Computed example of a mutant assay.
Amino acid sequence: MNVEIRLATPTDKAAAAEVHIVARNTYYEGHVDVAALDRRAAQLRAFYTEKLDRFDRRLWCAEIDGDVVGMALTGPSMDNLGPWVGQLYQIHVRPDHWREGIGTALHRTCLDAWREAGVTVGVLEVWSNNERAQSFYESHGWRPDGHSRPGKGETTYRRLRRTIV
């Protein structure tokens, strides 16, 4: 299997949205109402295809044989923590490609891009019920920094932080 990680082109946006949606629906399954997932899927499709260019974000794609199987989205911190802080908004891989190293390759690409841009600290949010994601990020050096915000139901989104060296 040969995975290519690259910056997305305009024609990749719809495929990246679908990767995000299918991965998201998988980890929210049983925790979030299906109608709510469907509403959010429509919002995500619109964001990726119509609104993403309005923001200072970089969309990365993981591609195998011309098929987008993973994506990552980075940009400035949502909490305006400073120009040296980057935010990893998303890493998603289609569930049929989990555990193949694609998320790790996307993660490495994001860190490399931040280093080149002079970003020294990364932040991200992870849903408290998504143990798979928490384990992934912890294995790559991310640690809780004490900040959180309300999530679905009685859950939270925890902010993790990592030094970029």
Rank of each mutant, 00 (worst) to 15 (best):
L44E: 06
L44V: 14
L44T: 14
R45C: 00
R45D: 04
R45E: 14
A46Y: 00
F47H: 13
F47P: 12
F47I: 06
Y48S: 06
Y48A: 11
Y48E: 04
T49D: 12
T49G: 08
T49R: 11
E50A: 10
K51Y: 15
K51R: 13
K51S: 11
K51T: 11
K51W: 06
D53G: 11
D53I: 05
R54N: 13
R54D: 10
F55V: 07
F55T: 05
F55G: 01
D56M: 03
R57H: 13
R57K: 11
R57C: 01
R58I: 05
L59K: 09
L59W: 08
L59D: 05
L59E: 09
W60I: 07
W60M: 04
C61R: 13
C61V: 11
C61H: 08
C61K: 12
C61D: 10
A62Y: 11
A62V: 10
A62C: 13
E63R: 12
I64A: 11
D65N: 09
D65T: 11
D67P: 01
D67E: 14
V69E: 08
V69S: 02
G70I: 05
G70Q: 04
G70Y: 08
G70A: 08
M71S: 13
M71F: 03
L73W: 05
L73M: 14
T74V: 09
G75P: 07
P76S: 10
P76W: 04
S77P: 03
S77I: 00
S77C: 00
N80F: 03
N80Q: 10
N80V: 02
N80R: 12
L81G: 00
L81Y: 00
L81S: 01
G82E: 02
P83Q: 15
V85R: 02
V85A: 01
G86H: 04
G86L: 15
G86E: 15
G86K: 09
G86N: 09
Q87I: 06
Q87A: 07
L88A: 08
L88R: 04
L88S: 06
L88H: 04
Y89E: 14
Y89I: 03
Y89R: 15
Q90D: 14
Q90H: 14
I91V: 15
I91W: 03
H92D: 10
H92R: 05
H92S: 09
V93N: 02
V93S: 07
V93I: 11
P95Y: 14
P95W: 07
D96W: 08
D96I: 01
H97E: 07
H97V: 08
H97P: 01
W98M: 00
W98L: 01
R99G: 04
R99K: 11
E100L: 09
E100F: 10
E100R: 12
G101N: 09
G101T: 10
I102P: 10
I102E: 01
G103T: 10
T104V: 03
A105I: 06
A105P: 06
H107A: 10
H107S: 10
R108S: 07
C110S: 12
C110N: 15
C110V: 15
C110R: 03
L111H: 03
L111C: 06
L111S: 02
L111E: 12
D112M: 09
A113T: 15
A113Q: 15
W114M: 03
W114D: 01
W114V: 02
R115P: 04
E116V: 13
A117D: 13
A117P: 07
V119Q: 01
V119T: 15
T120L: 01
T120M: 01
T120S: 11
V121A: 06
